[in-house]
Simulated assay, not measured.
Amino acid sequence: MTRTAANILPSAWQALVVTIFTLLLSWLLHLVSGTPYLSVFGRIGFIGAALLMAYSAAGALRPRWLPLGPARLGAVVLTAPVAAFITALVTQRGNFIPYLAQTETLVGHGLMVLLAVIFGVLFSLLAMRNERKERERADRLQIEVEKNTIERELLDTRLRLLQAQIEPHFLFNTLANIEALVAAGSANAGPVLRHLIAYLRAAMPRLSDADATLTTELHLVRAYLELMHLRMPDRLQFDVNEVPQTATLRFPAMALLTLVENAVRHGIDPSTDGGRIEVGGRREDETGAMTIWVSDTGVGMSETAQPGTGLANLRTRLQAFYGAGARLDMHEQAPHGVRVELHFHPGEKA
């Protein structure tokens, strides 16, 4: 079936409504006039089908200069007397002229034409109103889809911009660690440099990985801490715990590494005794809420310290991934140190 033919034919719902109405109207006229029901239904049914076809075809065949509404109403009004004339001609055959010559039958024929016009126009207006509502609903859905698409694209762009700020921050800190190691003339400079190269080779593909998971992030954190442990074996101890049931949990790339790097740089490095870093997490069985933490036993938070760009970006990225309810909390640890917690629900979206 071609596209034009499909547009000319009425919908199944329109055909059903017209059929039910003609059945009821035929029954009413049968009771009033005493004419056999099948005879009445044959004429009313034909007129109803003709009006329905006229309504539907007018939408597809109308000239471009003629609006849709007037085209359909005009087709229905013009089709009504023609369809009524055809029914009279078919049913009366050779008695058609004497049939119309009788006043009573002529009035009845005129009444049928009038009913066809009235109900045809009424049903046309109702059908056009329903079609207009359907179009408006479809337009609203399309606008909503386009709006969501644009918002998602803006969110992805924002995430890429935030991550672009994190990547240089991480790389420059790593290069500073290399410089300090070489300047100290440590015998471990060679092994540490080789570990650093291997680490960067593993880390670089993940810097822009939109599909990073919490498990891959924990592996990257462990590799980083092993590297830092080689640089200061007597001053840094660490423990990275696996979080159950998170192998495929999407997680902002480099987010956890930012917290661990801050713990090394601002907690362990300034401390003469060094300290320990612990990374872990848990998932609530009932709600599915996640808590990921990074704690250190370093020097703790300074009273004059201000949150850096890395933490501000991390808060924004976390909310972009998991919704406005996601948050980052920082706590002092006794006797000294800092614990940073990420709270979010994987089922929520921004």
Rank of each mutant, 00 (worst) to 15 (best):
A5R: 07
A6Y: 11
N7M: 14
S11K: 09
V17C: 09
F21M: 08
L23W: 13
L24I: 03
V32T: 05
V32W: 12
R43Q: 14
R43F: 14
I44M: 03
F46G: 10
F46W: 11
A50D: 14
L52F: 02
M53N: 13
M53C: 02
A54G: 11
L66E: 12
L66R: 05
L68R: 03
A71G: 04
R72C: 04
V77A: 05
V77C: 01
I86T: 09
T87M: 04
V90L: 07
N95I: 07
F96Y: 07
V117Y: 12
F119H: 14
L122W: 09
F123G: 07
S124I: 10
R132G: 13
K133A: 01
K133S: 07
E134F: 11
E136I: 06
E136A: 08
E136V: 03
Q142P: 12
I143R: 06
E144C: 06
K147C: 06
T149D: 14
E153L: 13
T157Y: 07
R158F: 01
L159N: 01
A164I: 02
E167G: 04
E167H: 09
E167L: 05
P168E: 00
L181K: 10
N188A: 06
A189R: 11
P191D: 13
V192E: 11
R194P: 09
R194A: 15
L196Y: 08
M204S: 13
R206Q: 15
R206W: 15
L207Q: 00
D209G: 00
D211P: 05
H219C: 04
A223M: 14
L230A: 10
L230E: 08
D234S: 05
Q237M: 04
P244C: 03
T258H: 05
H266E: 08
G280Q: 10
E284L: 05
D285Q: 14
T291G: 12
T291K: 11
G298V: 00
G298H: 10
G300V: 00
E303L: 14
A305I: 15
L311H: 01
L314I: 02
T316D: 07
R317Q: 15
A324R: 04
R327E: 15
L328Y: 08
L328S: 10
H331G: 15
H331T: 15
V338N: 04
R339Y: 15
V340R: 06
L342W: 08
F344E: 10
G347H: 06
G347V: 02
E348N: 07
E348C: 05
K349Q: 03
K349C: 09
